[in-house]
Amino acid sequence: MADLLAVLYGDVLNHKPHDPLWPARDRVILSKGHSTAVLYAILAEMDYFPVHELEQYGKDGSRFLTHVSHKVPGVEFSTGSLGHGLPFGCGKALAAKRQGELWRTYVVLSDGELDEGSNWEAILFAGHHRLGRLTAIIDYNKIQSFGSVADVLDLHPLADKFRAFRWEVAEIDGHDTSQIREALLVARDPDAPPLAVVAHTVKGKGVDFMEHQLKYHYSPPRTAEQLSEVLRQLGRGE
């Protein structure tokens, strides 16, 4: 998901980090609120706030809660309970459409959270109302909290499900930055169908002992040696 958010914030969004509430900004909602560490890091890199403030992550009195928090500059909406981001994003996209505004709404979802019925209410809604400037990005890493998606509640064929709900779909390699860019930069007419970007991803991508491992849904690097090895494999070693 880091690749998806990095391209979204770095190359796609129309935004002003020093003016987080700029009215014409594109709106981003990270519905998979447990992935907030990535979002905060990117917001810091984009200069929404100083990088050193990330040291406060998860500490007492900090605004950097460990689920997405709207107390953090650049965050539109707090999440954590799954299935809330897309309905909220539909409301924003509908407001833009009713007001003739051209900003876009991006909602980033996990595959596991598509178990939530509220998402399917919203998917039905967005297709019906042709919220063309709403884009859902699904981080489809095939692993959810307590097992593989295929074993728990299989989403396959996911792209077809969106199409059946009257969405347009782009299926991409969610780690290929050019594919991500191409999918997200395509112009969207306000009255077009909404766009679902089904991004096939690998959990723990880039770190050999983390890839596809459920354990790393819960566990960050625990030791200095492990952290060093993770950074080395990601090309960020000292």
Partner: peptide
């Protein structure tokens, strides 16, 4: 959720 989005 839509209502909250509209309200925002």
């Amino acid at each position: 959720g839509v209502a909250a989005g509209l309200a925002s």
